[in-house]
Design a protein around this nucleic acid. Structure first.
Lengths: 156, 156
DNA sequence: ATCTCAATTGAAAAAGGTTATTTTTTATCC
DNA sequence: GGATAAAAAATAACCTTTTTCAATTGAGAT
């Protein structure tokens, strides 16, 4: 999903809104103001790995009457549609980020054991390892989830 | 932790029980029948990645009056002591397995998207990747969590 | 514009897993 | 054996997530 800058606010273009509406329609779903607002919050906060509660807090500024259940339902829907990716950083909540459609699978994460910062790693050097495992274990790999725990430059 | 076979039952040796008792005592904890029974269930079911509830169900055979809270407290304690490793397979529960003390970090897991089987991978080929990431991102890696999702030999 | 019908919503309750509290029991040390 | 502290059971509390249900909304047909 492409983004554009409008002052400091990053949000969906009209064309992208139309694309989303189309995608939803194809599956019998509707594009409601709540859904657009939720996705917009996620786009604006790209790289922050928001939890449903955090999305809820932000989306309430634009949509004060929205319910938390709607946020849960919407992120589930967007995940099912392949727009969001659900992550688990073992902090008690699920977190969501935009799927980067060009890639086969998501990037890796560096998680600082001291300050909790989450850095993203674009290096996708698992190809060789995956190749080897595929053969050795007769297992066809579709996706992976790779987290490195340690200390970031500020904390070590 | 070494194991031995006694009929079909695999359990702790007397020496290992003493070792555990010693470890606990050093930190001001006690080796109770409940704790021994819980660890024993985990040893007997090595490779099965039991959840607290599953441990509870099994340990009740030997310890019918035990409470679920005791299982939770005990696995937390054993994790803190470095005897157990807590895992998350995104199935709604936490799962535990024995730490393999000889290794720096745990093995990887292959998770079948169809039948849910979890296979363990001993290959630790991340050294190169970790080396590269350490330098590129100035991040000192202490541990990792690597999961491959796909289809096992029976399901693909 | 209005009607119809299915999808969606908000509010509240329920569910599910995990943790905390309280009282009682048990183990250890002197 | 008695004092002291840890651990247990039972229960309640907690937190995130899901479900229920009545009311509302949106999209297309009338």
């Amino acid at each position: 999903m492409k983004i554009f800058h409008w002052g400091v606010i990053i949000m969906m273009t009209k064309e992208e809104t139309e694309k989303l509406k189309q995608d939803l329609k194809e599956r019998g779903y509707k594009l409601t103001p709540q859904r657009r607002a939720i996705l917009n919050v996620i786009i604006v906060n790209e790289g922050k790995h928001l939890s449903p509660e955090e999305i809820y807090d932000q989306v309430k500024m634009e949509c004060p009457e929205i319910g938390l259940a709607t946020v849960y339902r919407t992120v589930q829907l967007l995940e099912k549609m392949g727009i969001l990716y659900k992550m688990n950083f073992d902090d008690g909540v699920s977190r969501y980020e935009l799927v980067h459609s060009a890639e086969d699978h998501q990037h890796h994460h560096l998680i600082c054991l001291k300050c909790g910062a989450i850095e993203e790693v674009e290096d996708d050097l698992l190809e060789v390892l995956e190749e080897r495992i595929s053969k050795k274990y007769d297992f066809s790999i579709e996706n992976h989830d790779v987290k490195f725990y340690g200390y970031c430059k500020r904390c070590k």
